[in-house]
Design a protein around this nucleic acid. Sequence first.
DNA 1: ACCGTAGATGTACGATGTACGCCTACGAAG
DNA 2: CTTCGTAGGCGTACATCGTACATCTACGGT
Lengths: 207, 207
Amino acid sequence: MPRPRSLTRSGIAAAALAVVDRDGLAALTMRAVAKELGMAAMSLYRYVADRDELEVLVVDHVLTDLDLSVPPGPWRDRIAGLLERMRAATQAHREVVPLVVRHRHAAPASLRWIEATLAVLTEAGFTGRRRVVAQRTLVAYLLGALQNEHYGPLSGSGTAAMAELSISDFPVLAETAAQARALPPADEFRAGLAIVLDGLSAAASAR
Amino acid sequence: MPRPRSLTRSGIAAAALAVVDRDGLAALTMRAVAKELGMAAMSLYRYVADRDELEVLVVDHVLTDLDLSVPPGPWRDRIAGLLERMRAATQAHREVVPLVVRHRHAAPASLRWIEATLAVLTEAGFTGRRRVVAQRTLVAYLLGALQNEHYGPLSGSGTAAMAELSISDFPVLAETAAQARALPPADEFRAGLAIVLDGLSAAASAR
DNA sequence: ACCGTAGATGTACGATGTACGCCTACGAAG
DNA sequence: CTTCGTAGGCGTACATCGTACATCTACGGT
């Protein structure tokens, strides 16, 4: 009987993502998203409870199309594939990194990804507390790496500034920062992930 | 000749931290900090350029008293000590975690900590690109773990909600979440750190 | 043709960061 | 002791934000 809805939550998420991709995260406001959809600001509240829920919608939208199928092979490679895909999805919309960090536990697509990684860990022999630790450690590395890349990319001005620091106050840091600038982000991510996976392999065989 | 200043930047940082500790991060506003100091809001702008700089001040204040001296011993233990201290410092002011993540590269105290960890890594035999990767991986784990603990503590409602998920949709996740609730945060941090350090040890001896 | 329901919206309020300009307290100079 | 230049302190004001509230309206079933 009532009037039909003219929007969908996923349409709203897509519009919000378009705003963020085009104008940056700071431009993500209720009014901006509404304008993107050609509606009044308050109309959005028929679809989301508040701004936080809008943000969750954006995160879920970014992660929705994640391919969770992992080709058969060593568990190490399968875990690496899942992490790489998560990184690729968020790197496609760099500005949402802070949102992913804050809302990952509320986005259904993120839960599906967690289930997939836990399944691989289980096959690899992780159970109980060791499985919990393995999962949380992988997520910690993933989120931390995304943030390193977002807030302080090795190719960015922060690293350049560190390279200019006084050699007497920061001898090792200044030298290391200079070396760091040449390391491509994808290489950095893979190398760090290899270290974590080496540690996990040790934990797997220790049991 | 001019009128002397009545505040110091570190006094402002302390007041801001007091606000955050008492009322939460969302309560950190220029007006609230000014009131805490018994001054007008605009007076703060004689000491900081903008709100972002205030946030950096808070981060630096939290990390200022970090003990960077590491007792002699295996490099593994020394790195672990530095990470544990960084965690302890931020856990003493939990609400500040998001600020530490965003501004760590701008806070001098954070740079000193990085220098200290790099020095230990250097002694352990890491140089060049491998040292960069080792450092960034440690920081990624550290920041990710802090955020896991802050936004989604294993003892919190997020984990409880995951434990209630449908067994048919999320068989492994639901089971794992139930097991996870009993893992104390400090144990979680240490266990994850051990995994990363195992990986680093492998990288160190591989060279 | 009508009508009840829920969607869409216009207005408005409190809160926030901060630009701008004025007032004033202080230490140095006389 | 008086004077004065300088920079600290602050009152006001504005744009922008999230969103509460009340009203209007478009639609599908009768």
